[in-house]
Design a protein around this nucleic acid. Structure first.
Lengths: 127, 127
DNA sequence: CCGCGACTTTCACGGATTCTTCACGACTAA
DNA sequence: TTAGTCGTGAAGAATCCGTGAAAGTCGCGG
């Protein structure tokens, strides 16, 4: 059985809206609200965000992300995913400076999960 | 009743997830959770952890570990396994200070098994 | 047709992270 | 002591990743 609802199983319910922290993602409208404020995202940016947010807490490889958003196989050396993750981060951070949403796992991929930015905490040097 | 399922069934089938104490190892994603909190492991660190956790309770030689993770035969004097076990221990202890997972059997190899740390009871006072 | 603007894709550079190996000291056994 | 094992900090090389900017695509109004 699938561990995550990656396919569109809409038998029980179709959540037209995803929530993650202060983010509200309205799938049908292509609209993202950050604490009520609408974000200006391009189509690709929105699709990347949705692909990430649909699998909250999981690591998603670049290949997987590419297949989901662009379709087809990623050519070696293609950096499209990285570029759009960067754009997305930029806009998310502008809207919610003390949250981090997209985490990089070097060698594996990206993980979407709302977290307080680390500068909120005072961690000692030993930690 | 046991507090945690200490044993991991590695014989019946290929599970997507291994459990060991408070650790959850998601094989497909390359993600490890410690009490739900994601660990940031490098690719090698993750592979070493998986190789150990798949054989919970057993002593695994360095040669065996090297073959499983690096492939091929270990050259004499190679310390890669030790180095990565050390890194892994460091990150596991940071996440779960009260647990010890990787035990050294001098002359034989390493054994992976979640155990309560003993230094919880003897921290400052020598005993 | 032409230029413009928004968006997408590709390129390139530099910084960050990881991997491998070495070196030194602690520890153990004979 | 002497030899072997093990833990781990550190250095250099290799790889991965962030991102500004150039180049390409598309639709629209004049």
């Amino acid at each position: 059985m699938a561990a995550y609802p990656e396919s569109t199983d809409t038998t029980s319910e179709m959540p037209g809206v995803l929530h993650a922290g202060e983010l509200e993602i309205r799938l049908d409208e292509g609209l993202v609200l950050a604490t009520g404020q609408p974000l200006m995202l391009s189509v690709r940016e929105f699709e990347v965000l949705v692909a990430l947010a649909r699998r909250l807490g999981a690591i998603i490889t670049r290949d997987d992300l590419y297949r989901t958003v662009w379709g087809g196989e990623q050519r070696p050396g293609d950096r499209s995913v990285d570029v759009y993750v960067s754009k997305l981060r930029s806009k998310l951070e502008e809207a919610l400076p003390d949250r981090r949403f997209i985490h990089t796992h070097p060698g594996f991929g990206y993980r979407f999960q709302p977290q307080l930015s680390r500068n909120v905490y005072m961690e000692a040097s030993g930690g």
